[in-house]
Structures are given as structure tokens and as C-alpha cells.
């Protein structure tokens, strides 16, 4: 029956069931991503951020929350300029991170 309304999807992240497989693979390659403090320096300096929504901070968070589509969508706008690596106060090799994620996505595509 059509009531004209239906159950709304929940935006809550359930950490009990979250898919961390990609995060685990990526952190094995670059464990320093765990030290992100969410300061936003990377996004603030990003050449692509203002137009495309690219944000390394949000990519790291999305990896930790299992939101893989968001990871893919944000990273696709990266130009690999390396500016984010320059500004990170934790010294995270963000370029390495981005390449590691891309590599995993490519592997999946190939399969």
C-alpha cells in the first residue's frame, strides 16, 4: 500500500557492523593514518577541495567508518600535488595514503 511516506534511512554509523576491510588494508601500508587528529589542515590547503569536496581528513574518517563510496568519490578529485603532505602536523604521508587507497580500489576493479 502506498501511504505517501515511508521509513527513512538512518544516517547513524553503527560501529558494530561497519566494514573496516579497506581501512585495515590501507593502515597496514601506512599506519600513520591512525594518528590523524582531524585538524583539517589538509582540506584547507587542498587545491581541489573547494570545487570537488576532496578532503583527506574526511577520507581518513570515511575509511574508519566504512563509508567506501565517500572515500572513492572524494579521492577521485585528488590531483596528487602533495600540498596536504606538506601541511600535516602529524607528518602523515597523505600522498602514500591516497596511492594506497587507489591501489586497493584498482585491485578490486581487476577482480
Amino acid at each position: 500500500m502506498d501511504f505517501g511516506f515511508s521509513l527513512s534511512p538512518s544516517s547513524a554509523v553503527n560501529l558494530d557492523t561497519v566494514d573496516l576491510s579497506l581501512f585495515r588494508k590501507v593502515e597496514a601500508r601506512c599506519p600513520d593514518i591512525r594518528t590523524c587528529i582531524g585538524c583539517g589542515s589538509c582540506s584547507a590547503t587542498c587545491m581541489a577541495s573547494a570545487w570537488s569536496g576532496m578532503s583527506v581528513r574526511q577520507v581518513i574518517l570515511a575509511l574508519q567508518r566504512g563509508q567506501l563510496r565517500q572515500v572513492e568519490q572524494k579521492l577521485s578529485a585528488c590531483m596528487l600535488c602533495g600540498k596536504c603532505t606538506m601541511v600535516c602536523p602529524r607528518g602523515i604521508n597523505t600522498r602514500n595514503l591516497i596511492l594506497a587507497v587507489s591501489r586497493e580500489f584498482k585491485k578490486e576493479e581487476a577482480q
Binding site: F3, F5, S6, L7, S8, S10
Partner: peptide, 14 residues
């Protein structure tokens, strides 16, 4: 507000 009823029933469902 009928447009919001999805929220209403979602809360009950939860």
C-alpha cells in the same frame, strides 16, 4: 505534516 511522516514511523520502527 504529512511530508514528515516518514520520520514519525521511523522512530516507532526503531
Amino acid at each position: 505534516v504529512k511530508a514528515n511522516r516518514g520520520y514519525s514511523v521511523s522512530n516507532t520502527h526503531k
